[in-house]
Each structure stands twice: as C-alpha cells, then as structure tokens.
C-alpha cells in the first residue's frame, strides 16, 4: 500500500512541481509585491498599504471593476443563450453521428486561428467604410455610416461572443449527450410538452455543463486585456487592461494590488457558480 502511494506521488510530482513554481509561488509574489513601494526605476521592498489605497481609493478603479463585471455579465448572457441552443441543436436535432461530428468540427475550425487575428478580422467588417456599413447604405437602411460598430463597447462584446461562444457550447453539448433519451420519452409519455421537458428534464441535467461553460467564459472575459484594447480602440477599460497598462509603465506594485482585487473577484464569482452547480459530477 505504501509503495503504491509513493508511486502515485512520483507520477503526480511533475504536475505538482510545475504548479508550485509557476502558479502558487507567483500568486504569492503578487500578494507580496502588492505591499511593496516603488520608484520610477525599481521595486522597493516594504510593507505599505499605499498601493491598495491608491487603487481602491480611486473612483476610476471601481468604475473599471464595474465595467469588467458588466462585460462579463453581458457576454455570459449572450454566450449562454446562444450556446445553449447551439448545443441543443447538435445534441437533439441533428441525426447521425457522422453529421454531428462534421458540424462540430466546422465549429472548431476557426479556433485554429489566433484570437488576435480573429479580433482584427472584424475591422474590415465593422469599420466606418466596412462591409456592414456599405451593405446597410447600399440597402438604403441608413444614409450615414454607423459609428458605433467598431471601437465601441458593442464591438468588444461582439468579439467576446465571437471568441468564447464555443466554450459554452462544448460542455453543454457534452452533458446533453449524456442524458438518457428514455427520460425524454418518459416525459413525453407523461404529457410534458416541449418547454415543460426542456425546463424540468433537460435544463436540470445540463447544469454541470452550463456551470463549466460559465466558468470558462467569465474567467476569460474578466482577465481579458487585448480584446478590450483592440475592439474599443482605447475608449473602454477593463481591469486586465488597467493591469497591463500598469505593467507597461513598470508600476508593478500598483498592478499587483489591482491583480489581488481581480483575483478576489474571480474567486468570489467561481465560489458562487460552484455553490449553485456541482460540477464534480461532470468529472
């Protein structure tokens, strides 16, 4: 018995080592450095609260945190409501394993392109002289180009939905495929209609998938800096962007204080999701 535990440890050791060195220690570093002082050139080891006071004493920081939550919430609602029906389509409407696989692969192919490229790809589409405006003007729907399409919050959320909807579809699809089809027949035999079955049978059984998808989407949006920077054209802000700007200015302790705030917020959200949904069943 002792020997097998030792063997398991040896097998798990590389994973534990990587996570210790590149996750646990770095997170501890962030907490430590968030209490450091700094000058324009160097970090000054210290134990001061000024970074937190400066960060959270400022209305800008709170607004930025609020904005990040707003982006995350909006993206979550959109990806969930679209992703759920896409998963439903793949799981229950499409017939045949082959068709399903082909459609699934079709959905994943664009993910082989870099996220950055996929964001930039919206520029010729949404820009002032882009395809969208040209098409709308051509149809006579508008007579001046719409300005809000690119470099706006609209563009940011659109890009998030574009990048992350699949992260919602895959886990929900997985849970749906595991639903015993006889349950659906039983529901129908018992007189349940489409919506009734959906609400009382399918939805509860999909909860772990919805939970995992939500975790992915929320974490990805909360930590984002590139999408907000590129798609808002510098007109909007997120905590990630704020941190990356402070990193650019070498204000590491200030970035660290915001990072601790962001980490706390993400962990709270995760705790809330895990309370609502037991994802362990899924593993």
């Amino acid at each position: 018995m002792r020997r097998s535990a030792l063997f398991s440890w040896l097998q798990a050791a590389p994973l534990a080592l990587v996570l210790a060195v590149f996750l646990v220690v770095p997170m501890a570093m962030i907490v430590v450095v968030s209490f450091f002082d700094y000058s324009a050139f160097a970090l000054i080891p210290d134990f001061v609260f000024t970074n937190y006071q400066e960060a959270f004493g400022s209305a800008v920081t709170w607004r930025t945190f609020g904005k990040t939550l707003w982006f995350a919430g909006l993206t979550w609602i959109i990806t969930l409501s679209v992703g759920f029906w896409l998963a439903y389509y793949l799981a229950f409407v499409v017939k045949g394993e082959m068709t399903r696989t082909v459609l699934f692969v079709l959905c994943t192919v664009p993910f082989w392109t870099s996220n950055l490229i996929r964001m930039i790809a919206w520029v010729p589409f949404l820009g002032r002289n882009g395809l969208m405006n040209q098409a709308l003007i051509g149809m006579g729907a508008i007579d001046r180009p719409l300005e809000f399409l690119l470099f706006s919050d609209f563009a940011v959320v659109l890009a998030f939905a574009h990048l992350y909807t699949l992260f919602m579809v895959v886990p929900i699809f997985n849970t749906m495929m595991r639903i015993d089809r006889r349950l659906l027949e039983a529901a129908r035999d018992a007189g349940a209609g489409f919506w009734h079955t959906l609400w009382c049978v399918i939805l509860p059984l999909c909860k772990p998938g919805i939970g995992i998808g939500s975790i992915f989407v929320i974490v990805l949006v909360m930590g984002d800096f590139a999408t907000v920077r590129l798609m808002s054209g510098g007109q909007s802000a997120s905590v990630g962007l704020m941190i990356s700007n402070q990193i650019g200015l070498m204000q590491y302790p200030a970035a660290a204080a915001n990072a601790v705030g962001l980490l706390a917020m993400v962990l709270l959200l995760m705790a809330a999701i895990l309370r609502a949904i037991d994802i362990r069943r899924e593993l």
Binding site: L15, A16, L19, F22, L23, V24, V25, P26, M27, M29, I30, V33, I215, V219, M222, G223, F225, G240, I243, S244, I247, Y252, A255, A256, A259, L262, L263, V266, L267, M270
Partner: peptide, 21 residues
C-alpha cells in the same frame, strides 16, 4: 483543486506573477 485553480486564474495574473518572481 490546485489544478482547477490553475484554470481559473486569469492569464494576465500568471504573467504578472511569474514575471515578478
């Protein structure tokens, strides 16, 4: 749980933490 945590820590924080280390 540590492995799961690794999945939910935003990327930019890992970057910052490792950079600081």
């Amino acid at each position: 749980y540590l492995t799961l945590a690794s999945l939910i820590v935003p990327s930019i924080l890992v970057s910052l933490g490792v950079g600081l280390l």
